[in-house]
Structures are given as structure tokens and as C-alpha cells.
Design a protein around this nucleic acid. Structure first.
Length: 824
RNA sequence: GGGCGAGUGGCGAAACGGCAGACGCGUCAGCUUUAGGAGCUGGUGCUCGAAAGAGCGUGAGGGUUCGAGUCCCUCCUCGCCCACCA
């Protein structure tokens, strides 16, 4: 069969027999071109060519083992978009790699006894093969794999650079701990109080960990200037960073210790209503200032808060609890002595871990005060009148009452007045805080980048000297799944000497969060084998920043925020020359299966291989793009795949049949062709793949019923338009029709608006907005002529009977609407 | 509880404020075929009607407009994100 296809190539079929034999056989065609493209290096991208460079990046996958339909959805449409840009005259870098570190590999090792490195290699080999079957135009020479020492040594290098700059630090903080994975998690990896990976309830633990100081860039990360990113992603990031303006103030603790409680508030104007204070149970002052009589009760409460799962503790449904610690602070504005409580509704990790409670004007404080019979005082009134009793807290703006010298002011004005007054008295002043916390980057896991730090009893944490990088992850370890990270048990790795004093020391056994790996991989693609720096800057200058980035919305906060942070940090280290790593971002929606996320544990992962086998990769690519709007994702249902396959077969048949070399042009066909060029070009720029495919289907329907030179040219044009979508079949047909070189190296067709413009239009005739008739008119018909046509319509005449014409609306080439009034 | 997004045929969907349902799936009828399949031609929102045609139709209700799936308000349902953030 295959031989026959080769034999027949280029020739037009004449007999019925030949026609039947020379059918579309995707399997043979696709294999043939996979080999040819690989050997000719068709997808290799030079750093310099006669065309302008364009860096088109799609988020690299985790090597989970299988390219599933979700991957196809993420990669096939961007591949088409990248191919389109190539035909439009760009030198497009479309690289691929693997985000190869991570906990799954380690779990596979524990479950199956296979080393994570072996498991990962096996998976990558399979997935590369699947990428190739997809027909993705990937330059594999530029592949990046994050678990190789030549990659992660630069991860370590960056860590040390950030450490020098104070952007990486070791600190004690209440952190998220997953008891099952036995590791800490970043805030961003806790989903509904559960571990992102294994769904186990996360608890808070006080631990010493490594952090990247992302909060230093909070304000800059809120700016999206010059970025063409979807509104949705910008909003998600903005909310995640959570900027709040207010004041940070301090009230002294009663007694001689000189202690004070610092707190943040967005409502300094309500300070005269602060009738008590609340500390987080973990607040460092608790142990110090608790009254001896209350100590036992307080300790019990602190202990129970510590053991509570994060989700339970922060549940809004739960009734508030707390304990009076028997200490007092002074509200320096009212001069009053106010009680200090601890309660777990105050979070140690936000602000200063302490609040002034204003029950009259805060819901949570109101609920707490009501339960524990604490004073609720009105200090803001909507109308300026004082009320003796509040049934509910009043959170709105208004006139300040019972507020000493600032009474009678409006709250917006009072905010500033109180903050200024506090500053004058030396107890604080205006302040801004963020919801965003520093990025916790250390993990107690094996399969990741070792943190290049040595702990010396005498010198403390000491950076590994740059010339000793990489700190290689030891291969021989035992995977038991218990007893913490396997690294802690590898004596040859752990025991070392201090680079500073030469004394005995221990290596840090934590590894870096894999989101660190992926925060800079786009710089590595330009020259992944470069061994003098994390990036070959000469090559990088030709490509970066990324002009188009695509990936799933689920990374809107995690990866996309870390990636932006890393670019800014590297910029401040003098290592990159731009503020933002990716100028334009577009996301695809999720592919779900019967309304649920596909996952191996649910056993509902759909593999594309069977469809590729049956219909070919071109069909599956096209189907992925035809299903619906790319941003919306889809519930996987392959029932429509026959339709796109039939379309490809029809295109194939179009190119097989005889055509008339002579004959006259057909204006209708020419118009359809040029309109389709316009539509597909437009849709590819806006990622509206589904309507682009629909337009090509319409075009092929027109061509099927046409003949002559217009048809022949139309078929050639259709192949070019279809090339980014169905690269294999179009390449085969291009060759058979005697095309020179690869179809993928051809120029994208252009269209003539004059040819695309319709000659005739259908004018809709309306009476009072209701459609009464339709007439055909020459395009560009003027209003008077159109109105005349309308008045000639019998249906319009009938509908106008007994009505007086008030006015007429004319929309060129579209409609005439006659507005009437009942004549009396 | 807050924020964002979405509700259109049996299904996936399309529609610069201007012919609702392009394109495709499914389905029905016809042609073709020994048969199955594939292919081709045509129909297919709902209701009434033999037909011509008429009426009704974009989650519900109101509004703006000559004209609303599209803009505004209220509500309902679903999805995503955040969720005691001071």
C-alpha cells in the first residue's frame, strides 16, 4: 500500500480503480513524514535567519508517563498557532522539555521499587514519541530536562545568588505541613486546606525553612503594564497578592515590661471603638504576658489550635473560640484599659498576628464580642446620630461618633487623621500589607534540586562555593516512604566539611520546590547545553522575552507568579534585561471527563493513542481545535471526531479528481476562497481555532461543487490554510501535487478584500423591528434605492396597511427598518 | 460569604446591538451497494398546517433601543478562584 502511494505520487488519478486505491491512509502518510521531517531537520530553528525571531512557548509537561487528551489539547492548538506564525514569515522557536522533578516519581519509587530517575526517563521517552506522533513542530535539540545536573546546577546557582542578595533566607514560620507526603508546602499548593498532590488535610507547623522573598516584589507584581494577559489571570494574581492599605499601630501592654502589641488595621478611623485586642495563639507575646492564673487554660487552647487542621481552623462556619489571657493593653486613643484575648480566628501569618477588635464595625469581632459578652461600641454612624445598641456591626462609611477630637468627621477623612495622629505620638503610621507570603521553597523530599547549603556547628548555614556546583543528587538511596526524606539517611551525602572553617558539617537535605525549576526554564531553551551560565545571553538576546506563552489556567497563580518574580529577581541581579518574562499569555480551558477532572486515581484518563491509530494524528489535532472555544475547555466526548475525519477525507478527494485546466473564473468561488483566507488568518491570531476549522469546512463544501481554475487555485489555497492544522496530510498532498519543498515552508496565503467582498447582499426588511421580508440587492446600495425596494415588497405593503411611516432606519448592506405609528 | 465567568436545537457550538442556530455530530428520506459499511443528494429549533404560510423561540422577570442572545437592573442555576486576610 505504502509503496503504491509512493509510486503514484504526483500523478493525477484518471481511472476509477486508481481513485479507489489511492485513498487517504493516515497511518502510512504520517509515518513517512515523521521520518522525513526528522532526517531533514525541518523543525530545527536557527538563532539567526533572514526572518524576524518569535519565541512561542507552551508550558512544558510533567513526565507523568502518558500524553493524554488534556496534553493534546494543551499542545496541538499552540503547535498550529506556531506553524501559522512560521508561514507568516517568522523564525519561530517552539521548544519543549520536561518538568522532570517532583513527588510523583518518588511515589512511584516507593510503590513499585523503580528509581525515580528510571521512571522519569522511561516516561519521557514515551512522551517524546507521542509528541512526535502528534506532529508537533518541536526542535528537540533544544530540549530542557529539569532533573539533569546540567539544568539544576543553575537552580542552585540562582539560589546562592538570591541568598547573597537577601532574596533567599532561612526563617522560622508557621508553615503548611502535609502529614502524608511528610513535607512542607507553599501556600499556593494548599487547595481548600488540603495538599495539592495527595489531598491530605494540611496542618500548620512551626518550622525553620527556606524562603524566596517574593513579597519584596508584591507591588511590582501588581503591575501588568505592557503585558497582553487575560483579564482573568490578572485579577486572580491581584487578588492573590491582596494589597491592603491602612495603618500599623501599637498599643502598650499594661505593666512594666515595655511590651507593646503591634497590629495592622484597614480601619484606623474605628480606633475609638477598639474595646479589646486579640492575638493569634502562636503570637510570641502570649507566653510572656499571660496572667499566671490563666496559664493552664491558655496553654490548652494554644495546643488544640496547633493540632487542628488548617481547613477546620479557618472554617467560617465554625463558631469562634478564644481565651482571655488575663492581660491588658492600653488603647492610647481612648486611654482605656482593654482586655487581651487569644483566638484562632486571628492568623499568625497575616499582618502582625494581632488585631485591635472593633466589634461595632467588624463582623468577626462582633460575633466574638457577642459570644463572650465584650463591649460593643458604636463609633461610626451612617447618619451621624448615636445609637445605644447595635444589632449588627456597621461596616460602611459614615460619620464618626464617640471618637474624641475626631468625632463628626467623615470616616474617609478620619482614617488619615487617626493615622497621622498615631505617627505624631510615635505609635505607628500609615502602612500597606499583602496577603501574599514569602515563597516557601524547601521540601523534605528526595526527587528535587538539593539546596546548596552546608550546616556547620560553628559557622551556621554556609553556601556551597560556586565552583563546587552542582551539588549532585545521590542516586543510591532507599525509598521506604517513611522516616522523612531519603536524603537524610545517605551518610556520604550528608557528611561533609564546612567550606568556611573546614570542620565537620552536614549538608542541607531539603530539595527545592519544583516550581523553582519551572520559574526560569524559558531562558534555558535558547541554549540548553550552555555550561557557562544559566542562559547563553548572546542567544537569549535574540529571543527573549517570550512573545507568546500558553498553558492552563490552573497555573494562573502558582507558576505564572513565580515566573514573573524570578524574572524581576534576575533583573535585579543584572542577569536579564527585561521586567517581564512573557509578553502575551493565552490559556486553554480544562478537558474534563463527565464533568470531572481526568486523573489516574479516578481511572478516567482518556489516552489519545487509539484515536491516532484509527483516524490519524491530523484528525485528532483538528478535532481538538474544532470541539469548541479553546479557552473554554470541554467535556471529553469523541463522538464528533468522525466529522472532522470526513472533512479531511473530502479534502483528500478534492485533490484527487480531474480538473479542467481551462475555463473561466468563478467569482463566487473566488469570493469564498478569499473570505476563508481572511477568516482563518483572523481566527488563528485570536486562538479561535474552532471557527477557523468551520470556515475551512465551508470552503471545501464550496470547492466540491466547483470546477475550473478558481477551484484549482482554491484547493491549493485550502491546503496552505490547513497546513498548520493537519501538517501530515497537507504535506503529502503538497508533494503529490508537485509542490516545491515543504508546505510548511510556504508563505501564508493573502487575500484581496475586493475579491472577498460580496456582489449582492440580502437586505432584511423590517416593520417596527419585525422581519417582514428579505430582498436581494446589489452590495453598497444607497438608502433611497433600498427604501424604494422595500416599499415595492408586497409583504411590506401588506404590513404597512393602515400605518403611518414615522421614520426609516437604514443599515448599509444589512437592513431597512420602517418605524410606523398606527394612523388614527 | 466575596470575586470572576457561563446558561442558545437531541448534542458540541456560531452570531461588529441588525436574517438566531454558521460548521459539525446525531437523526429522517432518497440514491448507490449482493449485504454490511462507506459515499452522495436533500430535510431536520418548537407549535399549528397537506402546503403556502403563520405564531413562538437564546435560564426567569423587568428596562434602554427603531431593533437585544448581545447593553443595564433584579433573581435562579452551574462552573472556577478566594475564603475569619483585620
Amino acid at each position: 500500500m505504502e509503496g503504491l502511494i509512493y509510486f503514484l505520487k504526483g500523478g493525477r488519478m484518471t481511472s476509477e480503480l486508481d481513485k479507489r486505491i489511492d485513498r487517504y491512509t493516515p497511518a502510512a502518510i504520517e509515518e513517512k513524514w515523521r521520518e522525513r521531517w526528522a532526517s531533514s531537520g525541518l523543525h530545527n530553528t536557527p538563532d539567526v535567519s533572514d526572518k524576524p525571531n518569535f519565541y512561542f512557548l507552551t508550558m512544558f509537561p510533567y513526565p507523568s508517563g502518558e500524553i493524554h487528551v488534556g496534553h493534546w489539547y494543551a499542545f496541538a492548538p499552540p503547535d498550529a498557532a506556531a506553524r501559522f506564525l512560521r508561514m507568516r514569515g517568522h523564525n519561530v522557536l517552539f521548544p519543549m522539555g520536561f518538568d522532570a522533578f517532583g513527588i510523583n516519581a518518588e511515589n512511584a519509587a516507593i510503590d513499585r521499587g523503580m528509581h525515580p530517575a528510571v521512571w522519569t526517563e522511561k516516561n519521557m521517552a514515551h512522551m517524546r514519541e507521542q509528541f512526535n506522533r502528534m506532529g508537533a513542530a518541536i526542535d528537540w535539540r533544544r530540549e530542557v530536562v529539569t532533573c539533569y545536573p546540567e539544568y539544576y546546577r543553575w537552580n542552585q546557582w540562582m539560589f546562592l545568588k538570591l541568598f547573597e542578595k537577601g532574596l533567599a533566607y532561612r526563617g522560622e514560620a508557621p508553615v503548611n505541613w502535609c502529614p502524608r507526603d511528610e513535607t512542607v508546602l507553599a501556600n499556593e499548593q494548599v487547595i481548600n486546606g488540603r495538599c495539592e498532590r495527595c489531598d491530605t488535610l494540611v496542618v500548620k507547623r512551626q518550622m525553620t525553612q527556606w524562603f524566596y522573598r517574593i513579597t519584596q516584589y508584591a507591588d511590582e507584581l501588581l503591575k501588568f503594564e505592557g503585558l497582553d494577559w487575560p483579564e482573568r489571570v490578572r485579577v486572580l494574581q491581584t487578588n492573590w497578592i491582596g494589597r491592603s492599605e491602612g495603618a500599623e499601630l501599637a498599643f502598650p501592654v499594661e505593666g512594666n515590661s515595655g511590651d507593646e502589641i503591634r497590629f495592622f488595621t484597614t480601619r484606623p478611623d474605628t480606633i475609638y471603638g477598639a474595646t479589646f485586642m486579640v492575638l493569634a495563639p502562636e503570637h510570641p507575646l502570649v507566653a510572656k504576658i499571660t496572667a499566671p492564673a490563666k496559664r493552664a487554660e491558655v496553654e490548652r487552647y494554644v495546643e488544640s489550635a496547633r493540632n487542628m487542621a488548617e481547613i477546620e481552623r479557618t472554617s467560617t462556619e465554625r463558631e469562634k473560640t478564644g481565651v482571655d489571657i488575663g492581660a491588658f493593653a492600653r488603647n492610647v486613643f481612648t486611654g482605656e484599659r482593654i482586655p487581651i484575648w487569644i483566638a484562632d480566628y486571628v492568623l499568625a501569618t497575616y499582618g502582625t498576628g494581632a488585631i485591635m477588635a472593633v466589634p461595632g464595625h467588624d463582623e468577626r469581632d462582633f460575633a466574638f464580642a457577642t459570644k463572650y459578652r465584650l463591649e460593643i461600641r458604636e463609633v461610626v454612624s451612617p447618619d451621624g446620630k448615636e445609637h445605644d445598641h447595635l444589632d449588627a456591626p456597621y461596616m460602611g462609611e459614615g460619620i464618626m461618633v464617640r471618637s474624641g477630637p475626631v468625632s463628626g468627621r467623615r470616616t474617609d477623612d478620619g482614617k488619615k487623621a487617626v493615622a497621622d495622629e498615631a505617627k505624631k505620638r510615635g505609635i505607628g503610621g500609615p502602612s500597606v500589607i499583602y496577603r501574599l507570603r514569602d515563597w516557601l521553597i524547601s521540601r523534605q523530599r528526595y526527587w528535587g534540586t538539593p539546596i546548596p547549603i552546608v550546616h556547620c556547628e560553628r559557622c551556621g548555614p554556609v553556601p556551597v562555593p560556586y565552583e563546587q556546583l552542582p551539588v549532585v543528587l545521590p542516586r543510591d538511596v532507599e525509598f521506604t516512604g517513611r522516616g522523612g526524606s531519603p536524603l537524610t539517611h545517605v551518610a556520604s551525602f550528608v557528611n561533609t566539611t564546612c567550606p568556611k572553617c573546614g570542620g565537620p558539617a552536614r549538608r542541607d537535605t531539603d530539595t527545592l520546590d519544583t516550581f523553582v525549576d519551572s520559574s526560569w526554564y524559558m531562558y534555558r531553551y535558547v541554549d540548553p547545553k550552555y555550561d557557562k551560565a544559566f542562559m547563553n545571553k548572546d542567544a537569549g538576546k535574540k529571543w527573549l522575552p517570550v512573545q507568546q506563552y500558553t498553558g492552563g489556567v490552573e497555573h494562573a497563580i502558582l507558576h505564572l507568579l513565580y515566573m514573573r518574580f524570578m524574572a524581576k529577581a534576575l533583573r535585579d541581579l543584572g542577569e536579564v534585561w527585561f521586567d517581564e518574562p512573557a509578553l502575551r499569555f493565552r490559556y486553554q480551558g480544562n478537558i474534563v471527563f463527565r464533568g470531572r477532572k481526568m486523573s489516574k486515581s479516578r481511572g478516567n484518563v482518556e489516552t489519545p493513542d487509539a484515536y491516532v491509530e484509527k483516524y490519524g494524528a491530523d484528525t485528532l489535532r483538528l478535532f481538538m481545535m474544532f470541539m469548541g472555544p479553546w479557552v473554554d475547555g470541554a467535556d471529553w466526548n469523541a463522538s464528533g471526531i468522525e466529522g472532522v475525519h470526513r472533512f479531511l477525507r473530502r479534502v483528500w478527494e478534492l485533490t484527487q479528481s480531474d480538473t479542467e485546466a481551462s475555463g473561466s473564473r468563478d467569482a463566487d468561488v473566488d469570493r469564498a476562497v478569499h473570505r476563508t483566507i481572511a477568516k482563518v488568518t483572523d481566527d488563528l491570531q485570536t486562538y479561535s481555532f474552532n471557527t477557523a476549522v468551520a470556515a475551512m469546512m465551508e470552503m471545501s463544501n464550496v470547492l466540491q461543487h466547483a470546477s475550473g481554475p478558481s477551484r484549482d487555485e482554491g484547493v491549493a489555497t485550502l491546503l496552505l490554510l490547513l497546513a498548520p492544522f493537519a501538517p501530515y496530510m497537507t504535506e503529502e498532498l503538497w508533494e503529490r501535487r508537485g509542490g516545491r519543498g515543504s508546505i510548511h515552508r510556504q508563505s501564508w496565503p493573502t487575500y484581496d478584500p475586493k475579491i472577498a467582498a460580496p456582489k449582492e447582499v440580502t437586505l432584511v426588511l423590517q416593520i417596527d423591528g419585525k422581519v417582514r421580508d428579505r430582498v436581494t440587492a446589489p452590495a453598497g446600495i444607497a438608502q433611497p434605492a433600498a427604501e424604494k425596494l422595500a416599499m415595492e415588497s408586497p409583504k411590506v405593503k401588506a404590513a404597512l396597511d393602515g400605518r403611518r411611516i414615522e421614520r426609516t432606519i437604514f443599515v448599509p448592506d444589512r437592513l431597512v427598518n420602517i418605524v410606523t405609528r398606527q394612523s388614527s
